[in-house]
Design a binder for these strands. Structure first.
Lengths: 301, 301
DNA sequence: CGTAGTTATAGGTATAAACTATACAACACA
DNA sequence: TGTGTTGTATAGTTTATACCTATAACTACG
């Protein structure tokens, strides 16, 4: 079955004759007749009673007519429907985000995205960098919000912003009295570390190694909120991303930036190097940026 | 746009590649590629991002996929849907009936038909014979229940039954005392006549002419129920169809059959000579017969 | 009985969908 | 850095089929 056969069929039904239908369809009458016959063979039913000066729909024809019209109208609407869909941003977007970003930026981003593109569908995967890279390559994820470094050659990235790492101290910790904390002040101090499977854990480790700090790691956890609790209980200090600080309403810890060479992580959007980002993906990236900016704003005040 | 293009498109989307899709569709890969390209041109949008070992749907592709699947499933369901429709008698039937039959047989027939074919749609036209013949020829009506004679060569008929004409008398009318009323008893008697535009009126007139009765027509009406009333008030006598008598619960008139050459009209189903009656039409004819039979039954008792 | 109007059939043409072969690109793996 | 594998696109050819013209067969109607 092909659409032109349905077109011819509807034309015959509506004009009441093969000749008139052929005129309407801009084909010769025999061509149209043959296509109708072909359709009838395929369906195994006569569609028309051929009378002398008119044709009448058989029962099968009557049953076909509304269905054929439906299909044709759906087919002819497809083009405009697709344009509408694309323009109105009703597509679907699949994003990934690492666990050391998601808790702080995802809620706000999802909210904003949902308001800006109410008809779009979005799916979020929170996963470690390695897994997200695989997802990107397998096309399971359109874009991922993660942290450099990313060395896979199939991935391209765009920097969103730098998120500094700040010291987390228990309230009243000796260090909190020092005005300008320097790197050297951290040597051999009890430290709560993030698991190195997290890129953030790895980054902090490298940073300490580079600066030749050898913190005494007394706890290693998978979870930044665990770190917060340990720090607030005075078990040790830690380095946490500023985005955590800005969204921490508990004030159970004190936070200090390190003067001089403050460590930071480079937050990027990452996607398959051969893919062109969809409009929705670009918008999502913008929104993540806006959310971070607005955190900065409200934190200053 | 043609259905095979949509089939190829869905295959590519579902298999994630042109080669695999071509295998699934039993065509060579270049053929399929070209059809996809053609579809893309027609829609004015790329449907796939061609990556190295995979293809990803673009936004336009994502928008097309569910629509294409819908159309294809509708198309593939058409055959069975039509068979279902035809077998289950969900077709539509358009019947005609003359006004001197409809009041007595239509209500029961419609009721029975509706119960037997609950999903079918039926449309009834009550009209004079001339108009019904035109409707049949114009294919506006599938079958009509009417009375012979019908002389149009485009119409074929099937006799359903003979409906006798009986005398209608006012209660206590002198004639009602006669045991065996004969034709000669009717000569020059006051008569309530049906308009001759009704075939029944014409038939009665011919009958009187044939039998050389010259009734004194004191009233001419369009309506059999008017005749009933006039007769019951003693204005005169009349000839009415037996089907009226059998459905008259008022008993306001007395009815007598004429011994000897009792007049009757031949009730038939009529349809276009070139048309094959649909199953539903045949069933409707049966039902009309059954209704008349059941009237006879209940009248005897 | 011929004319006009209809659909079906026959036979040829042309379009376009199919095929084969091959080019081209990107990995994978040695 | 080659070499094989896997993927799509392109070129050229073949085949299928949708199309056309011409005409036949039929009927209604004048």
């Amino acid at each position: 079955m092909e659409l032109h056969q349905l077109r011819y069929f509807v034309a015959v039904a509506e004009t009441g004759g093969f000749s008139k239908a052929a005129k309407r369809c801009y084909v010769a009458q025999p061509s149209l007749s043959q296509q109708i016959i072909k359709l009838e063979h395929e369906l195994g039913k006569e569609l028309f009673e051929r009378l002398n000066r008119k044709v009448a729909l058989t029962e099968a024809g009557k049953a076909l007519l509304p269905r054929a019209k439906l299909i044709l109208s759906e087919a002819s609407n497809i083009k405009s429907a697709i344009l509408d869909d694309v323009d109105s941003g009703s597509g679907t977007l699949s994003v990934g985000m690492i666990p050391t970003i998601a808790p702080y930026l995802l809620p706000g981003s999802l909210d904003k995205y949902g308001k800006r593109f109410p008809v779009s569908r979005i799916k979020v995967n929170e996963n470690l960098t390695d897994r997200l890279i695989k997802d990107i390559i397998n096309l399971d994820v359109d874009i991922a919000i993660m942290s450099l470094p990313i060395d896979d050659p199939l991935i391209q990235t765009k920097t969103l912003f730098d998120d500094p790492l700040v010291l987390a101290l228990s309230p009243g910790h000796p260090l909190s009295k020092i005005k300008n904390i320097k790197i050297d002040d951290l040597k051999s101090i009890p430290f709560i570390a993030l698991e190195e499977e997290h890129c953030l854990g790895e980054q902090i480790k490298s940073f300490c190694y580079e600066k030749q700090i050898n913190p005494e790691i007394i706890c290693r956890t998978w979870n930044l909120s665990t770190i917060q609790h340990c720090v607030s209980y005075g078990n040790g200090i830690s380095l946490v991303p500023k985005m955590l600080v800005m969204t921490d309403s508990s004030q159970s810890c004190e936070y200090r930036e390190i003067k001089g060479q403050s460590p930071s992580r480079n937050i990027v959007a990452a996607w398959h190097k051969d893919r062109k980002l969809s409009k929705l993906a670009l918008e999502f990236i913008l929104i993540v940026n806006e959310i971070y900016e607005s955190l900065l704003e409200s934190y200053k005040v």
